Amino acid sequence: MTVTLITGANKGIGFETAKQLLALGHVVYVGARDAERGEKAAAALGARFVQLDVTEDDSVRDALATIGSAEGRLDVLVHNAGILAAGDVDGPAALRAFDTNAVSIVRVTEAALPLLRRSPNATVVTVSSSMGSFWAVTNPHRPEFGFPLPLYAASKAAATMLTVQYAKSEPGIKFNAVEPGATATDMTAAFGIGRSPEESARVVVRLATLGADGPTGTFQDETGPLNW
Rank of each mutant, 00 (worst) to 15 (best):
V3W: 05
L5H: 11
I6S: 11
I6L: 09
A9S: 07
I13Y: 00
F15R: 05
F15Q: 13
E16Y: 13
A23S: 09
A23Q: 11
G25E: 13
H26P: 01
V27T: 15
V28F: 05
V28P: 10
Y29F: 12
V30T: 08
A32S: 15
A35Q: 09
R37Y: 03
R37M: 08
G38S: 03
E39C: 10
K40T: 08
A41M: 11
A41Q: 07
A43L: 12
A44M: 08
A47D: 08
A47T: 06
R48V: 07
V50I: 06
V54D: 11
T55W: 06
E56F: 07
S59I: 13
S59D: 14
V60F: 11
V60M: 10
D62P: 04
A63L: 12
A63K: 05
L64E: 12
A65S: 11
T66P: 01
G68S: 06
S69Q: 14
E71Y: 04
D75Y: 04
V76S: 14
L77M: 11
V78D: 09
V78A: 08
H79R: 11
H79W: 10
N80E: 01
A81W: 06
G82S: 14
A86N: 02
G87I: 02
V89G: 07
A93R: 07
A93H: 04
A97Y: 06
F98H: 07
F98P: 05
F98I: 15
D99T: 10
T100E: 14
T100Q: 14
N101D: 11
N101L: 01
N101S: 04
S104W: 06
I105A: 13
E110A: 14
A112T: 10
P114E: 09
L116F: 03
L116R: 09
N121F: 00
A122R: 04
T123C: 08
V125W: 00
V125R: 01
T126V: 11
S128W: 03
S130V: 15
M131E: 07
S133K: 04
S133T: 02
F134K: 11
V137E: 09
H141K: 13
H141A: 15
H141L: 15
R142A: 07
P143F: 03
E144V: 13
F145Y: 14
G146Q: 11
F147N: 10
F147L: 08
F147Y: 13
F147T: 14
P148I: 08
P148M: 05
P150T: 03
P150L: 00
P150K: 02
A153F: 04
S155A: 12
K156T: 00
A157G: 12
A158D: 07
A159Q: 02
M161P: 04
M161W: 12
T163H: 02
Y166K: 05
A167I: 00
K168M: 11
K168V: 12
P171T: 05
G172S: 03
G172R: 07
N176M: 03
V178G: 03
E179K: 03
G181R: 01
T183V: 04
D186L: 04
M187S: 08
M187W: 07
M187I: 08
A189L: 10
A190Y: 01
I193A: 00
R195E: 10
R195L: 10
P197M: 00
A201D: 05
V205K: 01
R206C: 03
L210I: 07
G211H: 00
A212D: 05
A212V: 02
G214R: 00
G214C: 04
T218Y: 06
T223S: 15
P225E: 03
P225N: 04
P225S: 07
P225Q: 02
L226I: 02
W228D: 12
W228E: 10
